[in-house]
């Protein structure tokens, strides 16, 4: 069974920073990387992207790859200008209060449960 971004966000306690209108997107898995080309090459459409990068270029990567959402870890601050750009490009940005390892662990367990 697929889950959507809104459900994940609510169940795992993420905050939505941008793209509120697109939270019904389905999502199946996630990719964790801070290297943009790695995400470009290896992530798949519909995936969540866990990263510590918060600059403007993450929006282009998420949009071009059609990722379901970006999850910024450690409550890192994202500039309003980046969030506005995300809204324009229909990109969802969520914020996780936990570091990348914990965020990925929570997601991994959650997505596995959903699949079962």
């Amino acid at each position: 069974m697929k889950t959507n971004v809104r459900q994940l966000m609510q169940e795992l306690g993420f905050t939505c920073l941008a793209g509120e209108a697109y939270l019904d997107r389905h999502t199946e898995g996630a990719y964790l990387s801070d290297l943009l080309s790695d995400v470009m090459g290896k992530a798949e459409a519909g995936m969540l992207w866990i990263t510590a990068q918060v600059h403007r270029n993450i929006v282009a990567v998420a949009s071009l790859k059609e990722l379901s959402a970006i999850i910024v870890v450690n409550e890192r601050q994202v500039e309003p200008e980046v969030l506005a750009h995300a809204e324009e490009e229909e990109v969802v940005i969520l914020s996780s209060g936990k570091p990348a390892f914990e965020t990925a662990g929570m997601l991994y367990n959650h997505l596995r449960e959903v699949e079962c």
Partner: peptide, 15 residues
């Protein structure tokens, strides 16, 4: 530091 320069750009283009 921005996450570029992973040395995967050209291989990604080829693929």
């Amino acid at each position: 530091q921005m996450g570029f320069g992973a040395g995967m750009g050209l291989p990604n283009i080829r693929k």
